[in-house]
Every structure is written in structure tokens, then in C-alpha cells.
Amino acid sequence: MPAITPEWVQMMASYNRWQNECMLEAMESLSDADLRKDRGAFWGSILGTANHLLWGDQMWLSRLSPGATAPTVGLKDSADLAPTLGAWEAERFRTDGRFVLWAKELKTVSLTGDLSWYSGAAGMEKRAPLSLIVTHVFNHQTHHRGQIHAMLTQAGAKTSDTDLFLMPGFL
């Protein structure tokens, strides 16, 4: 199985933060009703999907980083994690900062071995190679931001580029 590097994780944590900032800018251009409108996505609305993404990031970070705390709601209530865009923005800012700090502290050896955790989604104990879990976390982020990007575009919001190579400081 190919290994990931601390540098790759740092790049992806920076990409995650940049994309969340871009997403916030587009979300701020919409009304509260537009953010909460059920758009047929799995988590319903733009805000609901953004909340689920934040919930997932906080849950995984609590498993990956000592001292990080898990969200106070379960998966089924993740779409309601932050009640307003302002509350979501504050939590998103803190969570992205924690991800970037966690990534900066990684050493190659930090990405070896397995991670064991109880998965509420699966209803059982799980164990997987840590490098796969970290890759999954960034894939999960990209997946849900793609959904949000599509919903924002459909709602008429101006969205930003999502290509990794266009991230400021990438090259």
C-alpha cells in the first residue's frame, strides 16, 4: 500500500482551509432561506451539508489528534451542528486551524500503523491503516464540498476555483 507523506497531508489541510474559505464567501452571498432550502442532497440543504462536513472533520480530528474533542451530536443530527452561518463559520475556522496545526506536527512515522475506533455509522469497532484513514478524511471533504459547490451554483452564488493547482502558494 502506498504511503502518504506529512508534506501531502499539510498540502491537503491547506487546500481544505482554502476551499472552506471560498465556500464561505459564496454562502455569505445567499439568504438564510436559500442556505436552508432543501435541495435534494443527502444532507438536504447547503448549510446542512456544510454542517455534516464540519461534523465529519471534527469527528475524524478527535480520533487523529490527542486533545481534540468530538462533536456533541451524532451522525443523524450532523446537518444541524451549527444553527447559523455565523456559528458554522466560527467552528469551521477553528476546525480548519486545528487540522493545519495537526498536519504541521506530523512526522512520517505518525502516518504508519493502524487506527482503531468505534464507528457509529457502522455500529461497530473498526480498524484500518492510518494512511488510508487520513486519505479518506480529505476525500470526504472534497466529496461534500463538491456537493455544496453544485448547490451554490444552482442557487446563483458565484463560486471560486476548486482546482488544487490554483491554490495560492501551490507552485
Rank of each mutant, 00 (worst) to 15 (best):
L81V: 04
A103Y: 12
G97Q: 10
K104A: 15
R94T: 15
P66S: 14
G56I: 11
G86S: 12
G44A: 12
T142F: 06
H140S: 05
V100P: 00
M59P: 03
A70H: 07
E125R: 04
P83V: 02
M59D: 03
L111G: 02
V134S: 03
G67Q: 09
H136N: 09
D34L: 04
E25W: 02
W102T: 08
H143D: 12
P83H: 01
S110R: 13
A87T: 05
E91Y: 11
W102A: 03
T72D: 15
A79R: 12
A87I: 04
I133V: 15
A103T: 02
M59T: 13
T69C: 04
G123M: 07
E89C: 15
L47Y: 14
A26Q: 10
S110M: 02
D114M: 08
L130T: 11
T112H: 11
D77W: 08
G40I: 07
H52P: 01
M27L: 08
F138Y: 14
R39K: 05
G56P: 01
E125P: 05
R127P: 03
Y118L: 05
L101C: 11
L30P: 13
E89N: 15
H136C: 14
L130M: 12
R63Q: 03
H140R: 08
S119P: 12
F93N: 15
R94I: 14
F138A: 05
T72K: 10
D57S: 08
N139P: 05
T72F: 06
Y118R: 13
S78T: 10
D38L: 01
A87Y: 07
A70E: 13
I133S: 10
S31M: 00
K107H: 09
L54W: 13
G40V: 01
L115C: 04
E125M: 10
E105F: 02
K126A: 02
K37Q: 10
N51V: 08
D77C: 00
R94C: 14
R39N: 09
